[in-house]
Design a protein around this nucleic acid. Structure first.
Length: 972
RNA sequence: GCGGAUGUGGUGAAAUUGGUAGACACGCCAGACUUAGGAUCUGGUGCCGAGAGGUGUGCGGGUUCGAGUCCCUCCAUCCGCACCA
């Protein structure tokens, strides 16, 4: 090896050699050398490497961050969204939220709280399984490797996690309880009368003694039976009926089927008609699947949002997703073909505008509506069939893309208007969704733009029921105005007409006031291997639960992680002997979705090793809600909704005492990567520099950012990157360099723009990384990663170090601090505390910089000042704080038991500004003054300020009033 | 279309209830030290202007002694939902 430009680095210490490699222009490599090579001059500098490894070891050995289960201190629960341990490892974006929560957790400890700050892994999931399919390696092995890597990376950043409480969703000790919770949900129904989930046994008892007439449940089952009827039903039928009530149930549902992934997906896992993972097309398919009756909790999920401190935007996303609409159901009888005679059959619709019922001029059914075949007349049968086929071939995505194309088909059938007796033509059209409401709408073209468009397109007459409103160009959708031409509703204002219409509908017995939710039940089974097995077996085709004593049902070994040839899930490959517990005719071979394990992990941290319960009541009562949850807002419609749902369920069943899991949440913004591009010509071997690319026809290709420095490509490194680039040719800039293009994108392995925290920790230290990530900008903001400013933060820590050490000697004195130093200190205490309380970590870092700049200028080396500063700093830069705390003569590691410094306003002594704050004959000043000053002193100080003189313009104040809040009123 | 958020120097950004706009940091400029520097130190740095001074927080208006902050109109960007009856 040639140490062409080797030199001692000044800013770490002499045991670090900076090397310039000739072929890697301007890239620094760090190599540790034996300490005997160390120059004496360097020991005195801030040596983050030694400091950090020392404290890493100390913390690992002494576990100062272990949370006590019993404590006199008030509790505080700070939680991060646990990561999925992917093969790529952590990039600099992951720790952003973790650093913020760690700072806050450490701050709360200093403030005297018993803090629970745990970490774990959401370790079931698709990528490990995809990798297993490719390599044949068991996902448990890859998962364990990835977890080890994550742990190593996390440890380097100096987090204060209580690792004794680590959970992994894929470990049997954990998923035993996920299975157990599933059993509870299966054994429950939702009682609308008590507005609670209740045990299914109570429902069965009611069926046995009274039938189901009196039951008000969340269920689509509408057939009424008596106790005698129930008691004589065969057990299979009883089981089927109970399925209609259970909160975890097996049913034929329209599901999002993703052929490429070979599994069904929940609605939140489908984005714009393609799968969230991989972006594969998703189609609608009728399949027998496990679902969770989350709909039962819709109203509580909505109202519960009022009680939590989350951002409006996440709350709105959830409100939107739940999609509450208030209106009425209405039944339209079918026309039998004889004037004045109704059929017994009817079409039920849901409408939010019952006031417009007299404006109905046609009805539209979803193509999948069960009555379509029955009502279609022979004349239209072939056309209807053709339309249905065409609609079923359209993927969800095409259907969405096709919004502007109006399609539909008349069935030949008519319904009867319940109030006017008029005949109403029945159409089908794919703008009506089978999955929402009843899958049918009453079309009011004068009041709904979609109905209006449909009517125009098919020349259906449009009846206007709005007084003095022109509907010739567009529908009138406002809810202001007067209804006309509408029988008993004529002359009523719209809002009043709504109430009157619902009343009439209910009196006539053709419907009732109803609330509909857009939220659909959540599909709970996946046709995959790497997930929790269901604690379910089948006997005579009836699903039954495995006894608690036999939990967990372990994931059985299989020969391949693919579906079977006849399309069964991978678990169907397992021999009977491969199951640790086999019962009945067959085991359930679906697995649970990723959100199962993550819907309750925050509870397990409270009591992670409990073998008798998922969490003991006592510990759940003590730790209670998560006080602060930090994570991405992208989980708004997934994890965050499901976790709320399970929490409400567990509360109803009496296992826990709270109804909302996350009291306050902060959504950290994503850190984006800055990708670099090279531009290749069609010949596949010539690359054009960025500024010249417009003169050629080029294909942009991502290039690994480690070959690029300041947009300049390291050509040699690039050539060696891949075989195909060995003989690459370049069209260069005038100065002979190759300049890459760049773009800000999400960090991803495939874009070669991933910055790992490891190399930054190596180069600058964990404390610098922690502070720099906070310094980047507001926590919530999305921002591109950029290392430009990291030196500034590193310099701050070095300046800090120099307040304590000079040429290797500690220079802290016991001398009385100066007034200025105390002012700086107390200003900083105040600001840092305020910054922490409002989660403004970026300004926190800035305020430390200001503080150290000022203390340096004041040549302050006073022990009493520096001691307080070190405590203040310890949440942000814990390693160096511990080191300096020890250097000040404290017992090693005792800083975690120190108390947060107390702000004393008396040190901010000078009245150094004044502004008039109101002017009504009175002049009001606001001034920064010490509380210890008497009213007279304050008055004198304010009058002496040059600003006051300016505002008084030479006049004498007639009267001066000093207000306790240090506000001074003067009457001029 | 509906809902939410944001808009401040060359850059990341501060400005807590309306009170000296641009703190702090990056970058840049000049100087010092140095064999060298992407090290360190000192000074400068919103814009226009030699200067005094003027001007300035997306545009236009309003309230106020005083507006980045509050109110109204518009513009731009980002995010979420989107035939949801």
């Amino acid at each position: 090896m040639v140490f062409a430009n080797s030199q001692y680095s000044e800013h770490s210490n002499s045991r670090i050699l900076f090397l310039h490699f000739p072929h890697f222009s301007k890239r620094l490599f760090l190599v540790s050398l034996p300490s005997e090579l160390a120059g004496t001059a360097a020991i005195m500098e801030y040596n983050f490497r030694d400091i950090e490894s020392k404290w890493r070891q100390q913390w690992a050995a002494n576990k100062p961050f272990k949370a006590a289960d019993i404590s006199d201190k008030p509790k505080y629960y700070v939680l991060d969204m646990f990561p999925y341990p992917s093969g790529a490892g952590l990039h600099v974006g992951h720790p952003l939220g973790y650093i913020a929560s760690d700072i806050f957790a450490r701050y709360k400890r200093l403030k005297g709280f018993n803090v629970l700050h745990p970490m774990g892994y959401d370790s079931f999931g698709l990528p490990a399984e995809q990798y297993a399919i490719q390599t044949g390696q068991h996902p448990a092995i890859t998962t364990a490797e990835n977890v080890a890597r994550y742990r190593d990376q996390l440890d380097k950043i100096g987090f204060s996690f209580d690792w004794d409480r680590e959970v992994r969703t894929s470990s049997p000790e954990y998923y035993k309880w996920t299975q157990w919770i599933f059993k509870q949900i299966f054994n429950a129904w939702y009682n609308n009368d008590t507005d609670k989930a209740e045990h299914i046994d109570g429902l069965i008892e009611t069926f046995r003694t009274k039938g189901n007439a009196s039951v008000n449940a969340c269920s689509d089952y509408e057939t009424v039976f008596t106790s005698e009827e129930w008691n004589t039903k065969p057990s299979k039928e009883q089981s089927d009926i109970l399925m209609e009530y259970r909160l975890a149930y097996l049913a034929d549902s329209w599901v999002n089927w993703c052929p490429a992934l070979g599994t069904v997906l929940a609605n939140d896992e489908v984005i714009n008609g393609v799968s969230e993972r991989g972006g594969h097309p998703v189609e609608q398919k009728l399949m027998r699947q496990w679902s969770m009756r989350i709909k039962a909790f819709a109203e509580r999920l909505l109202t519960g949002l009022e009680t939590v401190d989350w951002t409006e935007s996440v709350k709105d996303i959830q409100r939107n997703w739940i999609g509450k609409s208030v209106g009425s159901s209405v039944r339209f009888p079918l026309w039998r073909g004889i004037e004045g005679e109704d059929s017994e059959q009817f079409i039920e619709v849901f409408t939010t505008r019952p006031d417009t019922i007299f404006g109905v001029s046609f009805m539209v059914l979803a193509p999948e509506h069960p009555l379509v075949n029955e009502i279609t007349t022979d004349e239209f049968r072939s056309a209807i069939e053709a339309y249905k086929t065409a609609a079923s071939l359209k993927s969800e995505r095409d259907r969405q893309a096709d919004v502007k194309n109006i399609t539909g088909q008349f069935t030949g059938a008519y319904a009867v208007h319940p109030f006017t007796g008029e005949n109403i033509p029945i159409w089908i059209g794919d703008y009506v969704l089978a999955s929402y409401g009843t899958g049918a709408v009453m079309a009011v073209p004068c009041g709904d733009q979609r109905d209006w468009d449909f009517a125009k397109h098919f020349n259906i007459p449009i009846k206007n029921i709005f007084k003095d409103v022109d509907i010739s160009e567009a529908a009138y959708a406002e809810k202001e105005g007067t209804i006309t031409d509408s029988g008993f509703l004529t002359g009523l204002p719209i809002k009043k007409a709504m109430e009157t219409a619902i009343q009439a509908i209910e009196e006539k017995g053709i419907g009732k006031g109803k609330t509909n939710y857009r939220l659909r039940d959540a599909i709970f089974s996946r046709q995959r291997y790497w997930g929790e097995p269901f604690p379910v077996f089948y006997k005579d085709d009836i699903p039954q639960l495995v006894d608690d004593a036999n939990l967990p049902i372990l994931l059985p070994e299989v020969d391949k992680y693919l579906p079977t040839e006849d399309g069964e899930p991978p678990l169907a490959r397992a021999e009977q002997s491969a199951w640790n517990h086999f019962e009945g005719d067959r085991m359930e071979t679906n697995t649970m979705p990723g959100w199962a394990g993550s819907s309750w992990y925050f509870l397990r941290y409270m009591d992670p090793h409990n073998e008798q319960a998922f969490v003991s009541k006592e510990k759940a009562d003590y730790w209670n809600q998560v006080d602060l949850y930090i994570g991405g807002s992208e989980h708004a419609t997934g994890h965050l909704l499901y976790a709320r749902f399970w929490t409400k369920f567990l509360k109803d069943m009496g296992f826990i005492n709270f109804d909302e899991p996350f009291k306050k949440m902060i959504n950290q913004g994503m850190i984006l990567g800055r990708s670099s591009f090279v531009y290749r010509l069609a010949d596949n071997k010539t690359f054009v520099s960025s500024s010249l690319k417009n003169e050629h026809d080029v294909t942009p290709l991502h290039v690994d950012i480690s070959f690029v420095d300041n947009d300049k490509l390291d050509i040699e490194a690039f050539k060696n990157w891949r075989e195909e680039y060995k003989n690459a040719e370049f069209i260069l800039e005038e100065d002979g360099s190759y300049i890459c293009g760049s773009e800000v994108e999400k960090m991803s392995k495939s874009k070669y723009n991933v910055q790992t925290p490891d190399e930054l920790v190596e180069k600058f230290g964990a404390d610098t990384l922690r502070m720099y990530e906070m310094f980047l900008g507001p926590l919530e903001q999305f921002k591109p990663w950029d290392t430009k400013g990291i030196n500034g933060v590193h310099n701050f820590l070095r300046k800090l170090w120099r307040l304590f050490y000079n040429e290797g000697n500690i220079i802290v004195t016991d001398a009385e601090p100066t007034k200025d130093s105390l002012k700086t200190l107390h200003k900083t205490i105040k600001k840092i505390e305020e910054d922490l309380e409002r989660f403004s970590f970026n300004t926190g870092v800035s305020n430390f910089m200001i503080c150290v700049n000022e203390l340096t200028e004041q040549k302050c080396h006073s022990r009493s000042v520096l001691e307080q500063l070190v405590i203040l700093l310890s949440p942000y830069a814990p390693h160096v704080a511990e080191e300096l705390w020890e250097a000040l003569g404290h017992e090693a590691g005792s800083i975690s038991t120190a108390a947060f410094p107390t702000f004393n306003p008396d040190f901010l002594v000078e009245a150094n500004f004044a502004y008039p704050v109101s002017f009504n004959g009175k002049m009001r000043f606001s001034a920064e003054l010490p509380t210890s000053m008497s009213a007279q002193e304050v008055q004198a100080a304010v009058l002496a300020m040059p600003e006051t003189e300016k505002w008084l313009e030479g006049k004498e104040p007639k009267k001066v009033i000093v207000v306790p809040g240090r506000i001074v009123n003067m009457v001029v």
